[in-house]
């Protein structure tokens, strides 16, 4: 039946004394008439595909347009040797976000989450967390259910595509989904998860979709970085007990309103914003 609000999910959590993941899993079983095993098998495939895609990154590849590639290697080398501002852990998140988004630009196999343009956000936070906290596949998959449930509500109330709602709908949604997943992994209950989602989404509200030459490369690759890092800071804030003043469903509604007001030149047409800069216009196919 798919959820239309996060409040609805929270209510089910409270009334039936279940956690966020269980509610989403059970809904999927009902919706697709699948067993818990069958549902998990599907989620597990996605997680394995993310891990594989991360492993398969090739630092020598460049995209057909020549606009992206090789930066994943640069980031990895820098964080391995230099005294960076962000430190090792965030450094790893940044590196993986760039790598996955570059793999996408270079026509490698990735997992859309929720879109191909934003495919780097979730794996960029989940893979380093899985290492650092020695998470089992089951735990990560549970977090992916949480992320998917959040994405479902955003898709239902607003949008998850740059063409319809700007980049806030794509990188913003991915970041909100990742923030909720991270809050869940550290034991945050449904309320903490919702605050993490709200905080993450608010931070990226208004972000326009302005890809140079209409290609999912500039600024998309680097926006995956901010989506991932924003998810971590949002999750940390929520876990610290910081609350979003605006309830999460209303934040999603605000995103919808903002997206609807965005000029079409700022919604994946490649006609406005960075795409319309003199440098951006130099790129022709």
């Amino acid at each position: 039946m798919a959820f239309h609000s996060l409040e609805q999910i929270c209510r089910l959590c409270r009334e039936e004394n279940k956690n966020f993941y269980q509610v989403i899993l059970e809904d999927d079983m009902q919706e697709r008439e699948a067993s818990a095993e069958a549902s998990h098998a599907k989620m597990s495939q996605l997680w394995q595909a993310m891990v594989q895609a991360d492993r398969d990154y090739d630092p020598t590849l460049r995209s057909a347009s020549g606009l992206s590639g090789c930066d994943g290697g640069r980031a990895a080398a820098y964080y391995a040797s230099a005294d960076s501002y962000c430190g090792d852990f965030i450094g790893e998140v940044v590196t993986r976000a760039i790598q996955m988004a570059e793999s996408n630009a270079c026509m490698r196999r990735i997992v859309a989450a929720p879109t191909a343009g934003s495919c780097g956000v979730l794996p960029a936070v989940l893979i380093p967390c899985a290492h650092r906290y020695q998470l089992s596949d089951q735990q990560v998959e549970e977090a992916l259910y949480v992320a998917a449930g959040i994405g479902q509500v955003i898709a239902s109330r607003a949008f998850i595509a740059g063409a319809t709602g700007g980049c806030q709908a794509e990188i913003g949604s991915a970041s909100a989904m990742a923030a909720g997943a991270l809050a869940y992994l550290k034991g945050g209950n449904e309320e903490v998860i919702c605050h993490a989602v709200a905080i993450a989404l608010k931070a990226l509200l208004g972000l326009v979709c302005d890809p140079v030459a209409g290609l999912v490369e500039v600024p998309c690759v680097k926006r995956n970085v901010i989506g991932a890092v924003n998810a971590m800071t949002a999750a940390d804030q929520a876990l610290a007990g910081i609350q979003s003043f605006i309830p999460v469903d209303q934040v999603i509604d605000a995103m919808r309103e903002v997206g609807e007001k965005m000029a079409s030149s700022l919604r994946e047409t490649g006609l406005g914003g960075l795409a319309a800069t003199p440098k951006g216009m130099e790129v022709t196919l």
Binding site: C106, R108, I110, V111, A112, L122, G151, Q152, A161, E217
Partner: peptide
Amino acid sequence: MNIFEILGPVMVGPSSS
């Protein structure tokens, strides 16, 4: 949309559309 339309598909990039 079901949750596997939110996460996934596994695909070759760069654009789902």
